[in-house]
Nucleic acid binder design. Structure first.
Lengths: 321, 321
DNA sequence: GTCCTATACGTTAGCACTTACGTTAATGCT
DNA sequence: AGCATTAACGTAAGTGCTAACGTATAGGAC
């Protein structure tokens, strides 16, 4: 499922789907077994059954809903003859909810069904059910202690005020080299075999032949990468430039490009070229601004299917003093 | 929270609450940070962003919702200027959803926020977040393979056709002795100190002085218990009778009572009495039917606060041959 | 007692979703 | 080609919840 790939961003949606699944399953069971109850009633009915008559707000607090929800559910339960409302003689504001005899009868028959539900859930989910329950429990508790919104806002503040750094390759960052490039390749083209090879083992195919890789780092997050490949002595290729599309506008591409060009100079290269595709307008503009010049033909013997643009770096004339 | 005590019976409710929590948190974050997006839009927008224009049904399948939901959400997204509808030229039935430039701009700014969400969730929930995601994942997968309703119905069929057995005490069943008695004590009275002592260590306080404990077992489930306590040589007390209230009507109480009386005879006791409370009408009727006779006074020197009924067993006259 | 504030709870409107239905277009069968 | 079936999708109605509001009562300050 696609939602799973969004991870923590789509927690709400996935939990809702699971929730609906369980509600639906429970109702199907109750109905086929002829139990006179619906899954949404269970928290209220079972609570009243366990602790006896209670006021609306007490029930709402116990089952974690608003008093409105309980009040409206009560309307329905009264229509169904499961509950009746009683004014509290000591406090005229309170409405005490009391189970009817019918409700007691209905609930007293539910033992085998509830038992089957517990066992069926276990049978269907193995220990995953236990794991899920535990996880829910821990999350509920954690969320009560550390409100999540504040945590997110704090992280955001830290991220936006963090400086953008350019860092050289380190083995721990290898996966980011793949991830950031695969992202745009998959979207605009497709991952060719040569891409997969180079991206999977950059140490062998980029660094060992005398090239370099740089990463753009924002706070703790790696948001972009770029490689300088030594094609032959003194001849370098700028390639594998990839910036997370959701981190655009922070100048990461420009900074990576500058880092590669600086490295090219340090290595005393005499030729720096790149291949790209004409549909990537913003990238091409950036290359041009940095000093790359469009060539009239594509590069002879290019390894890429998608390459229909060929550019060569022309060091800008020194500013007159 | 009360729902936690219901365990697998209230999975739906608890998941819904968590889901709402995350949706709410996300919206709060988006709003305070000025992102022009709502949490409910994310699956659709992000999917279109990832894979490009798609038809309504394709989106619905990907994000696990009905086409109606997507269609209605699209109405809103069109009003907000984030999406527009386009007829598919190759298939006049299909409506292709396309992100507008405004949507692209809005999404391109979200990197730092999404990043903060991921980090914030982690900060707030520690590894619980990972555990929760994993559990969700495993449950989603398990539910697709083994439909939960069938599993529950199968368990139910097994339970209702299982015979009701009466089994003697075994150490593994000790917790049930406590659970089944605490259930009704808490509901109708309160757990007195003497109860807690006896219930926690039945081997010492019931078995060692020469008593017995029986359990009613339905399938794999322990649904009732009853104890025969030796007060002094030949004098026995029937006590700690508890049947799960949701398993009433299966005759478990009667069967337990019979087992205790049979044991009393086997032990060649001469006196069998019990103490109870006048509010427990159905239980008293059952005792009477089994041969217990109301005594005019309460038992002298009773250990229980709640005891206001005293009954003594009178073996029924032998049937004439 | 009078007044003020807080509490309990019903009511309304709105939201996100579902199911059911109707319309239109594509597909398969003969 | 003609006709029934299937698929895509919008619309309407219903559900279960929330937020916001209104009303009645309780309880304290004076």
């Amino acid at each position: 499922m696609y939602l799973a790939s969004l991870g923590k961003l789509a927690l709400g949606s996935r939990l809702k789907a699971l929730s609906d699944h369980f509600y639906g399953a429970a109702d199907e069971v109750y109905q086929t077994l002829g139990a006179r109850i619906e899954s949404r009633w269970l928290p209220v009915l079972r609570y009243l059954w366990d602790v006896g008559p209670r006021a609306v707000t007490e029930v709402a607090d116990a089952i974690g809903q608003t008093h409105s929800a309980v009040s409206q559910l009560t309307d329905k339960l009264v229509r169904e003859g499961m509950v009746h409302r009683r004014r509290d003689p000591n406090d005229g504001r309170r409405t005490v909810l009391v189970l009817t005899d019918k409700a007691h009868e209905a609930l007293a028959e539910l033992g085998p069904i509830w038992c089957a539900v517990r066992r069926g859930v276990t049978a269907s989910l193995d220990e995953h059910a236990v794991q899920l329950l535990e996880a829910i429990d821990l999350c509920e508790r954690a969320l009560r202690e550390r409100p999540i919104v504040n945590a997110i806002l704090a992280e955001h503040a830290a991220i936006v005020k963090a400086p953008l750094e350019i860092v050289p390759y380190r083995p721990e960052l290898r996966e980011h080299f793949y991830r950031l490039n695969a992202q745009w390749l998959e979207r605009y083209f497709r991952v060719e075999d040569i891409d997969r090879t180079v991206l999977s083992d950059p140490e062998r195919y980029v660094l060992q032949p005398g090239g370099s890789i740089f990463f753009a780092k924002l706070g703790e997050e790696i948001i972009g990468t770029c490689a300088l490949l030594q094609e032959s002595p003194g001849v370098f290729e700028l390639t594998k430039m990839g910036v997370d599309e959701t981190f655009r506008g922070l100048g990461a591409g420009k900074r990576l490009l500058e880092a590669c060009i600086a490295q090219f100079h340090r290595r005393a290269g005499h030729t720096l070229f790149l291949e790209s595709n004409s549909s990537l307008k913003p990238a091409l503009r950036m290359y041009e601004k940095a000093g790359f010049v469009f060539q009239p033909t594509i590069r002879p013997g290019s390894h890429y299917e998608r390459a229909d643009v060929y550019m060569i770096y022309q060091a800008p004339a020194k500013e007159p003093a």
